[in-house]
Structures are given as structure tokens and as C-alpha cells.
């Protein structure tokens, strides 16, 4: 195989991953702004924390190849994926204790939000 071709393919892959990651990061931000209350906003934020971070860091890992940078990126990703649900849970639990209702009637119609 031609070295140049391999590099080209890797570039394309990492470009796709990075752009998709940027898209999901943006979706999370838009969602956090649009959603009607705290708990639904947290769902939107978790899209950025998981898909966004994983794709962006993954794209950079492809770019870095087999090197120390890749291991560090993997460590950052692993750390983010473990801590973000933990702090989300702490936040949701604290909000619940503070009496913020998850305004979800088991069969309530969500028509009011536009």
C-alpha cells in the first residue's frame, strides 16, 4: 500500500469524525437552550458529553496515530465518560432534593412547549 494513500484515508476518517463531533457538540448547546426545564436540559447536555467528546477526541486519536498523544486522549475520554454521568447524577439528585419537580405526569401531554 502507498503511504500517501493511507495518510489520505486516515485524514478523511478523522475529518469525518471531527465534523460529526462538532455537530453533536453544537446540538447539545442548542438543546440546552431550547429545552423547557432542568431535567430535559440535562438530556441535551449529555449528548455533548458523550457523543460530542467521543467523536472529537476519537478524530484526534486517528490523526495522532500510535503515539503518546493518543494514549493521553484516550485517558481524557475515559475520564470524561466516567465523571460526566457522576456529576450529572449529583446534579439531578441535588435538584430533586431541593424540590425541583421533574414535571412529568406519567401520561401528560407535552403540548405546551414550543
Amino acid at each position: 500500500m502507498d503511504q500517501g494513500l493511507i495518510n489520505f484515508v486516515l485524514d478523511i476518517i478523522s475529518w469525518i469524525l471531527l465534523t460529526a463531533g462538532a455537530f453533536f457538540v453544537l446540538v447539545g448547546g442548542v438543546g440546552a437552550l431550547r429545552m423547557p426545564n432542568l431535567y430535559t436540559r440535562m438530556h441535551a447536555a449529555s449528548v455533548t458529553d458523550t457523543m460530542g467528546a467521543a467523536l472529537v477526541l476519537g478524530g484526534m486519536m486517528v490523526q495522532a496515530g500510535l503515539s503518546l498523544a493518543t494514549i493521553k486522549l484516550a485517558a481524557i475520554l475515559l475520564f470524561l465518560l466516567i465523571t460526566s454521568p457522576t456529576s450529572s447524577y449529583a446534579l439531578a439528585h441535588a435538584a430533586l432534593l431541593a424540590g425541583i419537580k421533574p414535571d412529568a405526569g406519567r401520561a401528560a401531554d407535552p403540548e405546551g412547549h414550543a
Partner: peptide, 18 residues
């Protein structure tokens, strides 16, 4: 609420890492 703000601080931190 203050919890919305904590949520955004958390988001902001993740974005800073990225």
C-alpha cells in the same frame, strides 16, 4: 434555577477540555 447554572458550568468545563 441555580441548578441550571451549575449544569451550564459543567457543560462549559467539558467544552473547555475539548
Amino acid at each position: 434555577t441555580v441548578y441550571d447554572r451549575v449544569l451550564t458550568v459543567n457543560m462549559f468545563g467539558t467544552k473547555t477540555v475539548l
